[in-house]
Amino acid sequence: MDDYTVSVLTNIGLISFIALSAYLLIIAGEMSFGQQGFFGVGAYTAGVATAMYGVPLPIAAVMAMGAGAAAAFLVGLPTLRLRGLYFAMATLAAAEMLRIVFELIHFQREIDGEPIGPDGTQGFRGIRWVFENGVEPEGFLAMVWGLLFAVVALFLFMERSKLGATLRMLGEDPELARMLGVHVERFKLGVAAAAGALAALGGALYAHHNTYIEPRNFDIMLGVHSLAYALIGGLGTAFGPLLGVLIDIGALEGSRVFHGYRMIVFGGLVAVLLIFRPRGLLDERVVHWLKRRLA
């Protein structure tokens, strides 16, 4: 595999984490425009841990997930009371607030004679754990995809379990779910925290892949794309968001056919799909049909 293939595959893997995070909330019935904020929380947390305090990446990633879950929980407390469009707006506002917080953080330590750490809009350089520990790009790719497969396996397991069924009940009709005995508010907070942790894990890996992060990495573009990936790919299975990422980054970006006009093609694709397949390519009907064929 050449460098470029490795980097495209790594990018697909990284962005799948936040796409899955958006997907998790959508199937629970909430459209969040703010998952990029938790992706950023993960990136900054893990970056600070490895680059400034010498924490190994695996531990830093767990810390990032904790921070992402905590941030998502706190954002969820007031916003999950809101419905539909209001929830979407509130999550977007929360993510933008987080981004501005990143712009305001100047927290550096002298390491080997060099100031290391978040420096506001100047970004955060030198998150070099991967290089210092001799992890080759292929090795990092394997790490990203290994974790991603673990997450997808967890999703598939969950979807077959009662937990997954409850998520779908919430997503389809929270009031009916409440009548059947689901503790709706508590459940949604748990889902929001899990989605935050998942986005943060992606962010932690991204920071170490790129070695440099800055607040603008975590703006609305990332949030909108992660939602779009889940919606294009389909809401019937956890493979949906992966398919969405694959279509955008793998096919559109990777092929370079549309060059600078790719965003227009992508926007058109989203619009067309939302009209003809409002729940994505791999929607529930397709998944039920596939299950019957395979059974």
Binding site: Y4, N210, L222, R256
Partner: peptide, 11 residues
């Protein structure tokens, strides 16, 4: 800088 994972050029 905005969405570096999806918007990049071939190295």
């Amino acid at each position: 800088p905005s969405m570096p994972m999806a918007h990049n050029v071939k190295p």
